[in-house]
Design a protein around this nucleic acid. Sequence first.
DNA 1: AACCAGGACACAA
DNA 2: TTGTGTCATGGT
Length: 300
Amino acid sequence: MASAELPRPAPGAAARAAWPVSDYDLAATLDSGQAFRWQRVGAGWEGVVAGRWVRLTAAPERIEAETAVPQTSWDWLADYLQIRVELAPIQASFPDDAPLRSAVAACRGLRLLRQEPWECLASFILSSTKQIVHIRQIVETLCQRYGEPVAVPAGQAAAFAFPTAARLAAGTEAELRACRMGFRAPYLLAAAQRLAAGDLDLAGLAGRPLAEARAELMRLDGVGRKIADCVLLFAVGFQQAFPVDVWVAKALRELYFRGRRVAPRKLLVFSESHFGPHAGYAQQYLFHYRRTQATRTVRP
DNA sequence: AACCAGGACACAA
DNA sequence: TTGTGTCATGGT
């Protein structure tokens, strides 16, 4: 692997690695509504990836990582962060229109992660009509109550893995509702049960055509086109999946349809034809652009 | 204090 | 096919 491993672990951490990167905005990437477990702590970000506690820090042209236990390989993290993906060819594949140029300029270095499919699916089942901050709270509660504890550096607060499907399947709807997820509880429970029963093969989705993989996910109760596309884009690697939520719909209407009202179906057709082979990436730029723009300009 | 949030679904017209 | 009410909860 192309990472330079450093001999000096930080105080309390057992292992440390670093990768040279260019055009990687770690903060925007970890905080752009793809993943829900990252916490900004001081200058870094702490989270749990693949059952391992991790602290990430962005340095100029570098991303540094620390873990609580020694690592024989860092592939699991390099893959999650998509370290080796070059952004320039992706951005060059976008249509050369003014809206997308603005979005790319405003979100330079924003990346798509490659998440664990079950965690991603479960998280987005919980996401419907919820603000990102609240999704984080629900996911955190779920992990604290039903996730396996993971090793943390001395002096750090306890951390927990995302609960397995089998663990959630063994519980009850009432227990899930107690995590404040409301009407999404039966959806999550049923999905966990189907996975635990081997009735749905998330890992196998990557080898299938997009439409088939999407249809397979949409067989789950509570999973429609939008949530299915989030899982396909953020966890399975389908670059053309294009989740349209309220923010992306707003961005498309305002930037490409002169703010007019547009039928949801029409937005989908447009999204499938306009953005090219990395449409999903374009979607993430539009999403982040529209969200950060709004919060910046809403000053009286 | 209304309004809205990375929706989906059953049902109506 | 497209529109409306419902679901649960908390941030802004």
